[in-house]
Design a protein around this nucleic acid. Structure first.
Lengths: 216, 216
DNA sequence: TCGTCACCGAACGGAACTCGATCATCGCGC
DNA sequence: GCGCGATGATCGAGTTCCGTTCGGTGACGA
């Protein structure tokens, strides 16, 4: 459906694996390595993750880690990218199911997707959208939210009949940034996701989106 | 003045230096080391900061770095904590000068202080981005915003005559979280701080604070 | 059965971190 | 003020640990 454009629109970044896998088992390996990395990050944090930990937890040797990733940081950003991609797919799924008729309703689906990511993916709260933790210039410097904002705006205009006023992309970007930070807050307060904090996030987002383009 | 309580109220965390400095030159040393760390972070990013770089830039030996900090990560979190402390002092200064009569006005001073931090402290934006995300257990896990929210609420009630309704602390915490993330966004868009983004941040905070305790 | 893909783990290099020697400062008796 | 012992502060070579490489071995596809 139309919401599907979100994925292709936002995922412009190139793959960062060293050698594209040829045999089937490779893809599983990469997945297992990223799962391991995610678990390690959740346990000891980004800074203390070592490539040896990742290898051990994935039942692989260090050499295997380096077969697929050029260095430690690449593991982290691949993990971040996979999380982002999963978030997008989940969002599309929920948008297709909900068939929202307003931006507010659409964002409800996005928040649902993000909450599910925080709950199901171990290291997600630590990494989420920001993969420029490492080097400021790693992917052009713009946050992930900025990358979805534009395609989202386009979809909203085309599908929901939202009027394409100037500042729309900005407002969406702001809403995404706020969702991101408030959900992290919700999951810091309570590792299962504080219900009140999530609810507050939803309400605030509605306010942001509803707010007319007042007072420039 | 009364605003001064903010500092003592929010800074409960214990020092993370290895040995409390006794002689005067030590404090200067620590300051120099943190200045160096901040500059290094701004230049090469958090991940690529090495203790050797910090030592060299501070005209100290590696041994001196490890005299004051147990490990590399401690340098980063000390830097983060000092930034937080400076932000608090700046805030108090600006609050004392502005003598606000409403929460909205008070938050204007806080935003001013934060913006100034981003502008003047080299690695501040980078550290704000990751902060305790990178180091889960570093300071009890609760975000910095949660630590200021309570003392801030107390001050607002006592000094500004704000009614002490339930959820006040929460709303302040949310406002602080949003300020943090939106200012980081403003400084990612433009390293000098995108004016429009900062303005949008101020407006949104007003909305959050003004919002009555509607729809629980 | 051969070529290629995937995997392993010992070995290398560099960064994190230690530790005993050396220098600076403080305080105390004179 | 002036030695002078005690303690703080600094240094940097040395050690350990971790990120990364690379040549050898097993597994799959044709």
């Amino acid at each position: 459906m139309a919401f599907n454009d979100l994925i292709s629109g936002a995922l412009t970044s190139t793959g960062q694996v060293r050698n594209e896998p040829v045999q089937a088992r490779s893809s599983e390996r990469i997945g297992a390595l990223l799962d391991a990395a995610s678990a390690v990050v959740a346990e000891v944090g980004i800074e203390r993750l070592t490539t040896a930990m990742v290898a051990e937890r994935a039942n692989a040797s260090i050499g295997t880690v380096y077969r697929y990733f050029p260095d430690r940081i690449a593991v982290l950003s691949a993990m971040s990218l996979r999380g982002f991609e999963r978030f997008l797919r989940l969002s599309v799924e929920k948008l297709d199911a909900a068939q929202p008729t307003s931006m507010e309703a659409a964002f409800d689906s996005l928040v649902d997707a993000a909450v599910e990511m925080h709950r199901s993916e171990p290291g997600y709260t630590s990494i989420r959208l920001s993969d420029q933790i490492a080097l400021p210039e790693v992917d052009g410097g713009s946050a992930a939210s900025a990358r979805i904002a534009a395609p989202l705006a386009k979809i909203f205009v085309e599908e929901l009949g939202v009027t394409d006023e100037p500042g729309l992309v900005d407002r969406i970007d702001i809403a995404l940034t706020v969702v991101d930070s408030l959900l992290v807050r919700a999951f810091i307060i309570d590792s299962r996701g504080d219900a009140g904090a999530i609810e507050a996030c939803r309400r605030l987002v509605s306010t942001i989106l509803a707010g007319s383009t007042v007072a420039a």
